[in-house]
């Protein structure tokens, strides 16, 4: 026996979803795109990137769709102009903190592109340019490379390590603009409780954690040649 669904309106269409469904889940099920950077559907909603904003009739302002549960009678606008403009601003801020543009295949680059930003423009192109993260490469692990300067503190790696693998090898470190990630006590993956499952690299939206082999390929002048 199924519990009665929750009926809501999203972009003009009537939807019925199971109780407890978030607006983001409802939108994705309906094939509607909402930008996200800290979301991974294997992980509990985190609410950090703040770009999944949508308009909800009667709300004080845009709400984060990943942490807002659908309620009966809600009228939701996923293309809400203010929400999208703010989301774009947030992504512009994120692009401004990386010393180099994100690689084209990364989720960050793709989300930026889709929001109308040029992900290849570099940090100085942002309207709010300023300090960027210091390059710091850790490739002590045979498979995993960690480029701290690409970390945008979305917490996905830390949560994947926690909620998928249960290895608890990663943590957020520092605070504010200087927040980053670390494995174990900071001495790298190999010296931590890491089990090398790669879930962190899979979920990373910027390649801050990436596969070393791919990292080396990209670094090679002719990366296709280097594969051989």
């Amino acid at each position: 026996m199924s519990t009665p669904g929750v009926k809501l309106t999203m972009d003009g269409a009537e939807l019925e979803v199971a109780p407890g469904t978030t607006l983001l889940e409802a939108a994705r099920a309906a094939g509607l795109w909402i930008p996200t950077l800290c979301f991974d559907d294997r992980l509990a909603p985190f609410g950090a990137c703040r770009i999944c904003l949508v308009g909800v009739e009667g709300a004080k302002g845009p709400v984060a769709s990943c942490t807002t549960e659908a309620r009966a009678g809600m009228v939701v606008e996923t293309q809400h102009a203010l929400s999208r403009r703010i989301a774009r601003n947030v992504v512009e801020l994120v692009l401004s903190e990386l010393p180099v543009p994100p690689a084209p295949h990364t989720e960050l680059a793709q989300v930026a592109q889709r929001l109308g930003l040029d992900p290849t423009a570099g940090p100085a192109a942002a309207r709010w340019a300023g300090v960027t993260h210091e390059p710091q490469l850790d490739h002590r692990h045979p498979y995993l490379a960690l480029q701290h300067e690409l970390c945008i503190s979305c917490g996905r790696c830390v949560r994947a390590c926690d909620e998928v693998q249960g290895a608890f090898a990663l943590t957020a470190v520092g605070r504010g603009f200087h927040a980053n990630i670390a494995a174990g006590l900071g001495a790298g993956f190999a010296e931590s409780s890491c089990v090398s499952c790669g879930a962190c690299a899979d979920t990373c939206p910027t390649d801050a954690i990436s596969e070393r082999l791919l990292f080396d390929l990209a670094a090679a002048p002719d990366h296709r040649g280097a594969a051989r």
Partner: peptide, 19 residues
């Protein structure tokens, strides 16, 4: 200085505002 660093707008935005 006090931004906890979790949400993106605060983490980057307050530093930019200060700048």
């Amino acid at each position: 200085h006090e931004s906890c660093g979790k949400c993106f707008p605060c983490r980057v935005g307050l530093t930019r505002a200060l700048e």
